[in-house]
Simulated assay, not measured.
Amino acid sequence: MAPDILCIGSVLWDIIGRSPTSMRLGSDVPGRITRLPGGVAMNIAMTLRRFGMTPALLTAVGRDAEGDELIAACDRLGLGTDTVYRSDDLPTDRYMAIEGANGLVAAIADAHSLEAAGDKILRPLADGRLGTEVAPWSGPIALDGNLTEGLLAEIAVSPLFLRADLRVAPASPGKAGRLLPLLNHPSATLYVNLEEANILARSEAATAAEAAQALLARGAGRVLVTNGGAPAAEGRRGQGVITGQPPQVLVTRVTGAGDTFMAAHLVAERRGADRQSALDEALRAAATYVSGDIGS
């Protein structure tokens, strides 16, 4: 089946340890450890698939046992894997996180294979499978910040992305700065949390609305800023900033919440929702996710 959206970035194994106990540095507590398909691009693709879209993945996965298992899991989920770059000499990437009752305690993302693969993951956009330089892909693209700053800078000026509806998410606050080349891209929508927004805008905003305004002032065309359980904001150049209040829920997990928000917002817009309705729908979807009411 032909894809209707491309998800470019990290597809890896999420190894998540969760405990119902609040944790601090050095805590040693009982809990559960799970291994699930994850990564920003993967999380977005899974949510899009749940909402009825047909995503194709552009990423790097090793030709090791973990990679074969990951590709099989993607296929079972209905995600397009024909466009995945399979490397003979790079291992499949992994992400490890610890979550307590007080939220994310610590995480390490090992996405070195994706970084090493570089622009090889973009070949389907140029070789005719998904487009060419003269006839580039014209649909939506979800792009994550696990790519290198150099590759993201290339994407910002590449004719392969000239007609795309580009939706961009940082992989983490530590990688938010990588998105600077895309800040002024004419068709880019940035999805960030408050910390990431302040890094990109070089601001000290205390609310999502203030951070959205700061990003617009820095030249962004369109931004969405979340702030946990506090109001989120959506800002557009020349159209101002609107806000939405996330529903109050019991938080049972946090890894993947931002990716779910982004996917739900994109789907709501494709269904014709206005600005406020799309923001509110995305906030409800993210709240449902962190409450654990839907499967990973």
Score class of each variant (00 low, 15 high):
residue 16 I to F: 10
residue 255 T to S: 08
residue 136 P to V: 08
residue 184 N to S: 08
residue 220 A to C: 14
residue 42 M to K: 01
residue 120 K to I: 12
residue 175 K to S: 05
residue 167 R to L: 06
residue 280 D to F: 00
residue 203 S to M: 05
residue 162 L to E: 15
residue 38 G to N: 01
residue 291 S to F: 03
residue 81 T to P: 12
residue 274 D to G: 11
residue 235 G to D: 11
residue 226 T to W: 00
residue 106 A to T: 13
residue 4 D to E: 04
residue 137 W to Y: 10
residue 34 T to K: 02
residue 178 R to K: 08
residue 62 G to R: 06
residue 112 H to W: 09
residue 1 M to P: 08
residue 286 A to R: 07
residue 287 A to H: 15
residue 201 A to D: 14
residue 19 S to P: 13
residue 221 G to C: 05
residue 20 P to D: 01
residue 223 V to S: 01
residue 45 A to R: 02
residue 181 P to I: 00
residue 249 V to K: 14
residue 131 G to P: 09
residue 95 Y to S: 05
residue 260 T to K: 07
residue 276 Q to I: 00
residue 19 S to T: 13
residue 241 V to D: 15
residue 123 R to N: 13
residue 260 T to H: 15
residue 140 P to Q: 07
residue 188 A to I: 03
residue 229 G to S: 05
residue 155 I to P: 05
residue 203 S to C: 11
residue 221 G to R: 07
residue 8 I to C: 03
residue 21 T to Q: 04
residue 158 S to D: 12
residue 259 D to P: 07
residue 104 L to V: 01
residue 29 V to S: 04
residue 150 G to I: 01
residue 212 A to C: 06
residue 120 K to F: 14
residue 142 A to R: 00
residue 293 D to L: 10
residue 257 A to Y: 05
residue 266 L to F: 10
residue 229 G to I: 02
residue 117 A to Q: 15
residue 47 T to I: 03
residue 58 L to F: 06
residue 168 V to S: 03
residue 56 A to F: 02
residue 165 D to P: 01
residue 4 D to G: 04
residue 213 Q to F: 05
residue 10 S to H: 04
residue 296 S to E: 10
residue 262 M to D: 11
residue 128 G to H: 14
residue 206 A to T: 13
residue 227 N to Y: 02
residue 141 I to N: 04
residue 57 L to R: 01
residue 44 I to V: 03
residue 82 D to E: 13
residue 90 L to P: 08
residue 171 A to E: 03
residue 91 P to R: 15
residue 176 A to E: 07
residue 68 D to S: 13
residue 101 A to F: 04
residue 39 G to R: 00
residue 33 I to R: 00
residue 95 Y to N: 02
residue 53 M to F: 12
residue 239 Q to S: 14
residue 16 I to C: 14
residue 26 G to H: 08
residue 294 I to D: 04
residue 86 R to Y: 06
residue 221 G to N: 15
residue 128 G to K: 10
residue 289 Y to T: 03
residue 188 A to N: 09
residue 257 A to N: 12
residue 283 L to D: 07
residue 35 R to S: 06
residue 245 Q to G: 02
residue 190 L to M: 06
residue 280 D to Y: 01
residue 54 T to C: 02
residue 218 R to C: 14
residue 237 R to A: 15
residue 134 V to N: 12
residue 124 P to Y: 02
residue 290 V to F: 01
residue 52 G to N: 13
residue 244 G to F: 02
residue 130 L to A: 06
residue 51 F to T: 14
residue 176 A to W: 04
